[in-house]
Computed example of a mutant assay.
Amino acid sequence: MFISTKISLAALMLIGGAVETGICQTTATKRDPANPKPLVTDIYTADPSAHVFNGKIYIYPSHDIEANVPQDDEGGHFNMRDYHVFSMDNINGKVTDHGVALDVKDVPWAGRQMWAPDAAYKNGTYYLYFPVKDKEDIFRIGVATSKSPTGPFKAEPAPIPGSYSIDPAVFTDTDGKTYMYFGGIWGGQLQRWHTGKYDKSSNTDLKKDNEPALSAKVVRMSKDMLTFDEPVKDVTIVDKDGKPLLGGDHDRRFFEGAWMHKYKDKYYFSYSTGDTHFLAYATSNSPYGPFTYQGTFMKPVTGWTTHHSIIELNGKWYIFYHDVELTGQTHLRNIKVRELKRKADGSIELITP
């Protein structure tokens, strides 16, 4: 059942101060796997990147707010300004809000719109990767560091050289090498980089339905996790015949929200189809691909956007995602979790949210 934004925001005014300034905990409840409820209800959260660090679940989502910005095709109304980190001891445990981990005002090069982040751990340090528009309104990807998984995080003085677009997803392979997958079209600006340089007027990917679809990007990270260690590469997705998915194939081609996980030596690249609202996946024997399209594994949620992450915990797999149950409004979302099940051949079972 949806509640009005006005009521929801009034509730936030009563409790928001405590959340912003300290740790807030929700009560542990047994969650219905067939009807997951929002993990967080006192602030709006979306795009959850979940990780298991030292046996505990940490969630790095976007923090939706009512910014009173008119809605447009480039997502101007998604005008988020900071990140909170949440933790859970187990999948049914209480959710702890550790307060603001990074604020846009503390990123020297940032302008506006702190969109979907991700996190990683290496070298005794936790890394928070985040897309935000710079002073020229171009999305870049920044990195901030902390000795704690909950922050606070200190941002580097400049964005990662050579970074652009949105939705960084960082994956560390079993050999210790770390890769970043990123990109998103339309408001994510990926289509403006098709020549290798930023072109504000370019909408190339939106007009070439019979050409290979615009690709997500992948790049190996440097040992210090602060820069790229090589040129950025395309993430090519092909059909079962080895032919690249086309731009007009809106039910299957990449749009945004990349995630990588590994299962039995196979690389699973999952993503959102964007304007058709599916979560889909493709597999490969290499973290670089090419990836062979396997199918849809989640039908559309309520709300325009779909963005997820996948983790393994105690032998089971889980998907974290969002919808708009609390408000019914696309820019005021709430994160959820449910079990992700596989068939004997490793394929992912279809979820109907």
Rank of each mutant, 00 (worst) to 15 (best):
Y179A: 07
Y179V: 06
Y179F: 15
Y179W: 12
Y179H: 12
M180C: 14
M180A: 09
M180V: 12
Y181E: 10
Y181P: 10
F182A: 10
F182P: 02
G183Y: 11
G184L: 13
G184C: 09
G184P: 06
G184N: 05
G184T: 09
I185T: 11
I185R: 09
I185M: 11
W186D: 13
G187Y: 03
G187V: 07
G187T: 14
G188S: 07
G188A: 11
G188Y: 13
Q189F: 05
Q189E: 13
Q189V: 00
Q189I: 00
L190D: 15
L190R: 14
L190K: 09
L190H: 06
Q191D: 11
Q191F: 04
R192M: 14
R192N: 14
R192F: 01
W193V: 03
W193R: 00
H194P: 04
H194W: 12
H194N: 14
H194S: 13
T195P: 13
T195Q: 05
T195I: 01
G196I: 01
G196R: 01
K197S: 15
K197Q: 12
K197Y: 00
K197F: 10
Y198I: 12
Y198L: 08
D199T: 08
D199Q: 09
D199C: 00
K200Q: 12
K200W: 10
K200I: 04
K200M: 02
S201L: 15
S201A: 10
S201T: 10
S202L: 03
S202K: 00
N203A: 14
N203T: 14
N203F: 02
T204E: 09
D205H: 00
D205N: 06
L206Y: 06
K207H: 06
K207Q: 02
K208V: 10
K208P: 05
D209M: 04
N210Y: 01
N210G: 00
E211R: 04
E211K: 02
P212I: 05
P212F: 02
A213V: 03
A213N: 04
A213L: 05
L214N: 13
L214K: 08
L214Y: 09
S215E: 14
A216D: 07
A216P: 04
A216I: 08
K217L: 07
K217R: 15
K217S: 05
V218K: 00
V218M: 02
V218Y: 00
